[in-house]
Design a binder for these strands. Structure first.
Length: 929
RNA sequence: GGGCGAUUAGCUCAGUGGUUAGAGCGCUCGCCUCACACGCGAGAGGUCAAAGGUUCAAGUCCUUUAUCGCCCACCA
């Protein structure tokens, strides 16, 4: 019966089918509480802001490769998926959509707006899940989580209340980063600094002369933001600065505002910079805020939430901040108070999300004390309880933890976890939720144990804080909240700490560091000091970022983003996965390459066609009465390799040896996240070893008229193919699954993903036989080289001669004569008893043997051959000299390891023999000419 | 301003102190050989950014320089 192997490899035909199958049958549901070693990993939850991009694809491919690899090696494997509500980002997306209808969120009101965002979340989350399924992520969808679902809201409440009780969360009026577009405070991390060329204005502040500003005396201050001067409450000089000492205690007139402000001394001021006089605006500059505190200066906020000038801005009230700047500069000019304007390069802070210019501003917000939390985190990172790859990221992380500052966790948004604090309208007391219970109202969670009366004044007018938490607060709980924390669940006991976190290095501080700190703090308590079991992941791998072919960061707004689904349709998911993984060397970003993608597809195509070869040819065998079951059933495959006449055929043994070696390299490489190395090794095994040599070598055996011989060949081939597919599976899950199902399987075996990974210990092969095959390969290579050099008709069979001084090699050649003859396209192969003559033939040689194809004089370009020889001789001489030098060096002989010396001596001896041959051929060729 | 990284074949990049430094793509030559032209076979192509140092031995470790990136940072 003919197999159904389509003539052309068409990933579209197979991938969707298996993607659905894997999910429908819940093949990747993680079993609880069994004895095997476990491997658990939490998916970095994608934001529900849209769809999967190529960066997710890289991340998911790397995770999936490791997850499938572990699962196949017998680990009880959990990959827990889910999504992040992504407060500010999602709210931004929905607001933008509403804006197209001309609606603002305030028009809808909080409740209706939240309803709209939920609706969006359902759509976007659904799309992302479908994409992930389509891309073959082998996660456990039965455990899918969402950061805003009731169980996770409960975890947030629990964590918040604990931190609050412990005094690690506090509320206060401080300078924060304010995004006027998003109209919320944002954390330091969410401010992205950009170098921009702007202007710096030097402005004269007249000194007060009694009751009136002096016409002649003034101080010059510099500013890049003239609009903030309306909030100035002092000017400052360095206390050591002789130039200005005499002005201390005097006042200047703040231009435009007609406000007298003092000249103060503060060591913060750099005498060397500018004029050495600084205007102090405590309401709009973080440093000035600190100085203001030191000197008890008033703080004047001159702007509104949306960055217009407010009532404190005098005549400029109502103007947008940059319009105000223009007007102010103009007015100062008219009054002759601008001393000079210069171009100035400085870093401006922008909102990570919406790119608006961030305004430093005093505001009442919630903060988290980070220093106490950072200490244990530093410890686990420093002591290696948490293993970080690449290593340089470890330093970066430690550095950041060392310099950590408090975290502003409140956001003036509507989409997120509402802060579980109630404010008493009468006495302003803050009352936390009584416990972390949640109730479901209209399908969504909220705190259930709401305080009804104020414990301080007994008042009953309690209103919940209107702010929500920074989205990273809930993300920070992800590795344990998803497993049921704060309850002591079976999943939590079984899968926590997770084995590994794979994330992009761009969110190392945002997310990874916070998970470490929060996990250590919140889960440490029961076991008192047992950091190793509180840590949220034992290993951390920071993957690279995918860039455009030009090396630019991908960006949707610039249109340089790439849709992975589209690439999938064109090249296949397996090809895209393979391309990403094969380029994923730790620590280096990936430039997306269409060429590499094409190469990856060619690889998939190669695999497909190898399968076609096997099955199409087996059809012919089947016609003669042998069933597929007879040679390829799981039981038959398992017992391979099979021997013929008491000996395992050379190619079979060699191939299995290569497989074992490949598995060993793959295991080591994946264990160290060297995905590229693992992928390339697999590639060379399958293409080079399996297709180019093994299949080519065994073709005649498969058709051997001796039925027993043929059956052995088929059995070994099917077994090898099965193992090769399993080797490939973590990298290319779809094609390997598809082809694996073409083999007979036990009824209970539902997927290759649940079968064993090939072992490096099985049939590593004896070095003797592996070497024998390698020699045959080398001889064939020499023959082919001669043929190409002589420009022989590729179909023309020729006579060749072979000489080797080693009896073992001579007998090897006898044993493998037919293969050499066939792959070298020879008519005859003569084993000679003495060195081959250069005249009348073209010779290629190694230290071990030499091969000669006799020629008619006109088939070879003697001059070209001489050039080639000369070059080869030069290279060889160089190598020999360097070895002789080293070996002649006494210190080398004393200090180098014995193995290195022996290896070198062996190689030197061989190279010397080879050099003699080359020199002799050169001489003969010259003589003939 | 502080920190981190990169510089290797035409291009994109691997490379764990130890034989004459590798891969993919591209290039050259020859082949539609009954699995595959997304293929087969054979080749060409590199004073490893520069200089100095450590070492028996350096693409690999150290120092300096140059160029290009990235991250962090409150210099008006």
């Amino acid at each position: 019966m003919a197999r159904e192997i389509a003539k052309a490899y068409d990933p579209q035909q197979i991938e969707l089918r298996w993607a659905d199958y894997w999910v429908q049958d819940a093949l990747f549901q993680a079993p609880v509480r069994r004895s095997e070693p476990r491997f658990s990993i939490a998916l970095p939850p994608p934001n529900v802001t849209g769809s999967i991009h190529i960066g997710h694809m890289l991340e998911h491919t790397q995770i999936d490769t490791l997850v499938r690899w572990h699962r196949m090696r017998g680990f009880r494997t959990l990959w827990l998926p889910g999504m992040d509500h992504a407060g500010i980002a999602t709210q931004f997306v929905v607001e933008r959509m509403l804006a197209k209808e001309g609606i603002k969120r305030q028009d809808l009101g909080r409740e209706e707006f939240e309803r709209r965002v939920w609706k969006w979340k359902e759509e976007s989350g659904g799309v992302i899940k479908q994409q992930m399924i389509r891309l073959g992520a082998s996660c456990d969808w039965t455990r899918e989580r969402f950061t805003l679902e009731p169980a996770l809201y409960r975890a947030v409440l629990h964590a918040f209340l604990q931190f609050y009780r412990e005094g690690l969360i506090y509320r206060g009026r401080y300078m924060v980063n304010w995004c006027p577009r998003c109209q919320t405070a944002i954390s330091d991390l969410e401010v992205v600094h950009h170098e921009r060329t702007g202007e710096i204005w030097n402005i004269r502040y007249p000194l007060m002369d009694g009751k009136r500003p002096s016409a002649a005396e003034y101080l010059v201050v510099a500013t890049t933001r003239p609009e903030t001067m309306l909030g100035d409450t002092a000017v400052a000089v360095n206390p050591e600065d002789e130039r200005y000492r005499r002005y201390l205690g005097r006042k200047v007139m703040l231009p435009l505002m007609n406000r007298e402000i003092p000249v103060i001394a503060d060591s913060y001021v750099d005498r060397e910079f500018g004029t050495g006089v600084v205007k102090i605006t405590p309401g709009h500059d973080p440093n000035d805020f600190e100085i203001g505190k030191r000197h008890n200066l008033p703080e004047i906020d001159v702007m509104t939430d949306d960055a217009h000038m407010n009532g404190n801005a005098g005549a400029y009230a109502g103007l947008e901040r940059f319009a105000a700047r223009g007007r102010i500069v103009n007015d100062l000019k008219e009054q002759g108070l601008i001393e000079s304007v210069k171009e100035h390069i400085h870093a401006v802070g922008t909102c990570d999300r919406c790119k608006a210019l961030v305004e430093p501003r005093i505001s009442t917000q919630w903060f988290m004390k980070m220093k106490p939390l950072a200490e244990p985190a530093k410890q686990v990172v420093r002591d290696g309880l948490l293993h970080v790859t690449p290593d340089n990221q470890r330093t970066i992380l430690l550095n950041w933890l060392e310099n950590i500052r408090d975290w502003c966790i409140s956001r003036q948004l509507w989409w997120g976890h509402r802060i579980p604090i109630w404010h008493c309208a009468d006495c302003k007391e803050m009352v936390p939720a009584l416990d972390s219970k949640v109730e479901i109202v209209k399908g969504h969670a909220r705190a259930a144990s709401v305080p009804k009366t104020c414990p301080k004044c007994g008042g009953s007018k309690l209103a919940q804080d209107s702010d929500v938490l920074d989205t990273w607060f809930s993300s920070g709980l992800w590795p344990f909240s998803t497993l049921g924390w704060p309850d002591d669940t079976e999943d939590l006991r079984d899968f926590y700490p997770t084995s590994l976190l794979i994330s992009g290095y761009d969110i190392l501080f945002f997310w990874d560091a916070r998970m470490i700190m929060m996990g250590l703090h919140l889960l440490d308590a029961p076991a008192a000091g047992d950091l190793a079991n509180a840590i949220p992941f034992r290993r951390l791998y920071l993957h690279s970022l995918v860039r455009t072919a030009e090396g630019q960061k991908m960006s949707k707004t610039k249109g340089t983003g790439v849709d992975p689904l589209q690439l999938t349709q064109e090249y296949g998911t397996d090809a895209l996965r393979y391309m990403l993984v094969s380029m994923a060397a730790p620590g280096t970003d990936i430039a997306l390459s269409v060429e590499r993608l094409g190469g990856a597809k060619a690889f998939a195509n190669k695999i497909w066609n190898a399968a076609r070869f096997i099955f199409v040819n087996f059809d012919k065998v089947e016609e003669s009465g042998t069933n597929l079951e007879d040679v390829a059933s799981p039981g038959v495959r398992e017992k391979a390799p099979y021997a013929y006449e008491g000996e395992i055929p050379l190619a079979d043994e060699w191939l299995l040896g290569r497989l074992a070696a490949t598995v060993e390299v793959v295991n080591e490489a994946l264990g160290d996240y060297r995905f590229h190395e693992a992928a390339q090794t697999v590639y060379h095994f399958f293409w080079g070893d399996f297709c180019d040599w093994y299949i080519e070598w065994t073709k005649p055996d498969l058709q051997d008229s001796n039925k027993e011989r043929a059956l052995v060949a088929w059995k070994n081939l099917f077994a090898a193919f099965d193992r090769a597919l399993r080797l490939l599976h973590p990298f290319m899950p779809f094609i390997s699954e598809e082809l694996w199902h073409q083999l007979p399987q036990n009824p209970g075996d539902r997927s290759i993903a649940l079968k064993d990974y090939p072992s490096a210990q099985t049939h590593p092969g004896t070095s003797q036989r592996v070497n024998e095959f390698a020699n045959a390969q080398e001889i064939i290579g020499l023959i082919r080289n001669i043929r190409a050099e002589m420009k022989l008709d590729p179909k023309k069979r020729v006579v060749a001669e072979l000489f080797s001084a080693h009896p073992e090699i001579r007998s090897q050649v006898e044993r493998n004569r037919s293969g050499i003859v066939r792959l070298g396209l020879l008519s005859e192969l003569h084993l000679k008893a003495e060195r081959l003559s250069e005249t009348g033939g073209l010779i290629r040689s190694t230290g071990q043997f030499e091969v000669r194809v006799p020629y008619a004089a006109d088939t070879v370009d003697a001059a070209a051959e001489l050039t080639r020889l000369k070059k080869e001789i030069a290279g060889l001489e160089k190598a020999i000299h360097s070895k002789e030098n080293q070996l002649g060096n006494e210190t080398f002989r004393n200090r180098a390891p014995q193995s290195v010396i022996e290896q070198m001596e062996g190689a030197l001896a061989e190279q010397k023999v080879e050099l003699q041959k080359l020199l002799e051929r050169q001489r003969q060729l010259k003589d003939a000419a």
